[in-house]
């Protein structure tokens, strides 16, 4: 694969793309919005990155293996992209969803049959969520296989584990929200494990609390997976966990830069 951009010899085509793009770039409309005189110089390349609010997380240059899919698999970036998709689709879904019983379920039916693009929205949210869990695991696998947790990146690996935990928790809290049998019982199974916590669980070994004050009660806001749990999970899913996730994500991305960018020998 060529490493630098080469000018390809112009071919005879239906539309002369180069000419077209030159004319667009010379127009007033274009010039008012984008950088002008975009000559492809190293300095301009650097400025394009560090002068852009969205892109200046990147360094100006990276090591060559850092752009290779066969090295990074792109899984970290894909996970982040999926997170953005989830944010946008999640906010849109919030317009149509009420976290109470039985409105939650009926709103699901409403989305499925009535709301324009309702089913699509719900689908993309759910599948992105599942996909993100998978891509996060693959990212973890890659980082391990390239030994990129070794010094100086130990702390970042720990932050990553926290992010993994929160990804799973976000998926778990979201799982309850449709309030169907699948949701209710999956969460029941999941939260019943909390009952068995040693000391702080009502049915764990050496329990010192009863069912109305144990860890599970704190998690569910009650002794059953009921209206309190639904509301609590909704708040966790939409506000608390995303915020915490974003905090840790910022640290994670910043540490990548601080630890010297993509790891290498």
């Amino acid at each position: 694969m060529p490493e630098t951009i080469e000018q390809k010899p112009p071919k005879k085509k239906l539309v002369n793309w180069e000419e077209l793009s030159r004319q667009i770039k010379a127009s007033q409309f274009y010039k008012s919005m984008f950088r002008r005189d975009y000559k492809d110089t190293p300095r301009n390349r650097a400025l394009a990155v560090i002068g852009n609010v969205w892109l200046h997380l990147h360094p100006v240059k990276v090591r060559k293996h850092g752009i290779r899919y066969s090295f990074t698999w792109g899984m970290g970036g894909i996970s982040f992209y999926l997170f953005l998709v989830l944010l946008v689709s999640g906010v849109l879904l919030m317009f149509y969803y009420r976290p109470s019983i039985p409105e939650a379920y009926h709103d699901m039916k409403f989305l499925e049959f009535d709301v324009p693009f309702g089913m699509f929205l719900r689908n993309i949210h759910r599948w992105s969520g599942h996909a993100m869990v998978v891509t996060v695991w693959l990212h973890m696998l890659r980082v391990f296989m390239t030994g990129s947790y070794k010094p100086p990146r130990e702390f970042n690996w720990g932050v990553g584990v926290v992010l993994l935990t929160f990804t799973l928790l976000l998926s778990f809290t979201g799982y309850l929200l449709p309030w169907d049998q699948l949701a209710l019982w999956a969460v029941t199974v999941g939260t019943n494990m909390a009952k068995a916590t040693p000391f702080l669980g009502a049915e764990g070994p050496f329990s010192i609390v009863d069912a109305a004050s144990d860890v599970r009660f704190a998690l569910l806001g009650g002794r059953i997976v009921g209206p309190n749990a639904l509301l609590r999970f909704y708040v966790f899913h939409c506000i608390a966990f995303p915020l915490i996730f974003l905090v840790f994500l910022s640290v994670h991305l910043w540490r990548v830069r601080k630890d010297g960018g993509i790891s290498g020998p």
């Binding site: 390349r45 990147h58 100006v60 240059k61 990276v62 090591r63 060559k64 293996h65 752009i67």
Partner: peptide, 8 residues
Amino acid sequence: ESGLKVDV
């Protein structure tokens, strides 16, 4: 490869 650096 890590000797070489490419533009982001």
